[in-house]
Amino acid sequence: MPRLAANLSMMFHEWPFLERFKAAKEAGFTAVEYLFPYEHPAEAMGAALQDNDLTQALFNLPPGDWAAGERGLATQPARRDEFRTGVATALRYAAATGVKRLHVMSGHGASDDKAARAAYADALRFACDQAGPAGIEILIEPINGRDMPGYFMNDFDLAVDLITELGLPNLKLQFDIYHRQIIRGDVLTGLKTLLPLIAHVQIASVPARAEPGSGELDDIRVLQELDALGYTGFVGCEYRPAAGTLAGLAWREKL
């Protein structure tokens, strides 16, 4: 059975954010993830987890100005100091929540831009170095260009190349089944081939990004195959419920 983590940025919108932890617990989840915790004090995030006996599976480093369209700072040499400040902020929240995996959004840039790649590599080295003593893994995630045009980390080969090139023990792959299907397809082969690099998995239906099992993939079979491969990490439910969070949770009964 996969270790499902409710994504509180996309699910449980029927509740204010800090009340979503309790709602997720009452709906049967034992873990949560979300995009960003930074609008709330670190202590409040830790208390919400502790009060509801939940594990924090993942969140992202600060992305820059999200409302203005920024999707990470790591590929921008001129924002190096701001990125490093963001690492310190994320680690402070990690200490409060006990999370062991942080996702570094790359930011925008052409995948063949050598300066962007060099800045990204430098940012990942720094993040891994800072996170390592706390036992925290740094993750990179290929995101499809349809949902996020111009995003630098837009392909699985690029992710594998960077992880291999840098050779950092706590630099891992975040494998989003939704993005994989749009970028490359061949989801089961990808999971099997890349499993040694994978530290976190996410799922949503394709193309609507709704509940698993409601789109073109047999998501239930994919999750069962993931179990069969011996994956023991979390599977983040990063989907937008089609007709209310609680009404859309029946898919879990098929696992």
Score class of each variant (00 low, 15 high):
residue 15 W to T: 00
residue 89 T to M: 13
residue 228 A to I: 07
residue 171 L to E: 03
residue 29 F to C: 11
residue 87 V to K: 07
residue 255 L to R: 02
residue 165 E to I: 00
residue 182 I to W: 12
residue 168 L to P: 06
residue 194 L to R: 09
residue 102 L to F: 05
residue 245 T to F: 03
residue 42 A to S: 08
residue 246 L to Q: 08
residue 165 E to Y: 07
residue 116 A to Y: 13
residue 189 T to C: 06
residue 98 G to Y: 14
residue 86 G to E: 07
residue 121 A to I: 00
residue 70 E to M: 06
residue 249 L to V: 01
residue 9 S to K: 11
residue 34 Y to G: 02
residue 80 R to H: 10
residue 65 D to L: 02
residue 175 F to V: 11
residue 100 K to T: 14
residue 119 A to T: 10
residue 121 A to W: 03
residue 11 M to S: 07
residue 143 I to W: 02
residue 31 A to M: 08
residue 227 D to Q: 15
residue 67 A to M: 04
residue 192 K to M: 01
residue 104 V to M: 09
residue 176 D to L: 04
residue 87 V to C: 05
residue 134 A to P: 02
residue 75 T to C: 12
residue 169 P to G: 03
residue 148 M to L: 15
residue 179 H to Y: 07
residue 103 H to Y: 05
residue 119 A to W: 13
residue 56 Q to T: 02
residue 177 I to N: 08
residue 30 T to V: 10
residue 8 L to P: 00
residue 233 G to Y: 10
residue 234 F to T: 10
residue 211 E to K: 08
residue 242 A to V: 01
residue 95 A to Q: 14
residue 204 A to Q: 09
residue 220 I to R: 12
residue 137 E to M: 01
residue 211 E to W: 11
residue 64 G to W: 10
residue 16 P to E: 08
residue 55 T to G: 02
residue 126 F to I: 04
residue 220 I to P: 12
residue 139 L to Y: 01
residue 106 S to L: 09
residue 78 A to E: 15
residue 206 V to I: 10
residue 149 P to K: 05
residue 184 R to W: 06
residue 14 E to L: 06
residue 68 A to T: 02
